[in-house]
């Protein structure tokens, strides 16, 4: 494998790790992602996707864990309305993160960066 192929491989592995962290392997996926980040070189596609994965997952951690935690704290654990918001919010936003990570995964397979248009 030459250097370029190696970076492509790392790009797609990073995107995969990011998706796994959001789905079936939380935390483990993120550790894997950090590990991949350390292996990549600056200015490469591998680094780009490792950083993107880390950013997405940090954003997800804030949106899902912190915001949900705040909703619970402020709304009160024993109010039905808290759970109405927490569960609907968590399910929907979590699913959106999974969709974004899936798009990023597919994008990483093309070896190109994200673009703002998709049609």
């Amino acid at each position: 494998m030459n250097a370029e192929e190696l970076e492509l491989k790392r790009a797609s592995l990073s995107a995969l790790a990011s998706l796994l962290n959001l789905t079936v392997l939380p935390v483990i996926g993120f550790i894997f992602l950090l590990f991949l980040y350390k292996q990549t070189q600056a200015q490469t596609i591998g680094r780009y996707y490792a950083v993107l994965g880390i950013k997405i997952n940090l954003a997800a951690a804030i949106a899902l864990i912190i915001v949900t935690g705040l909703m619970l704290l402020l709304g009160g654990f024993y109010s039905p309305w808290t759970w109405v918001f927490v569960i609907s919010y968590f399910v929907f936003v979590h699913a959106l993160f999974i969709l974004v990570a899936t798009w990023i995964l597919v994008r990483s397979w093309t070896g190109k960066k994200l673009t703002t248009t998709f049609l």
Partner: peptide
């Protein structure tokens, strides 16, 4: 269902042409 998402995302990203019927691509995605 997840695989269908992955599949649709994948082929749209690897497309060989830009079909003039953008609406159909949007519906498919």
């Amino acid at each position: 269902f997840f695989m269908m998402t992955l599949f649709a995302f994948n082929v749209v990203n690897k497309r060989r042409r830009d079909h003039p019927n953008k609406a159909a691509v949007l519906w498919a995605l």
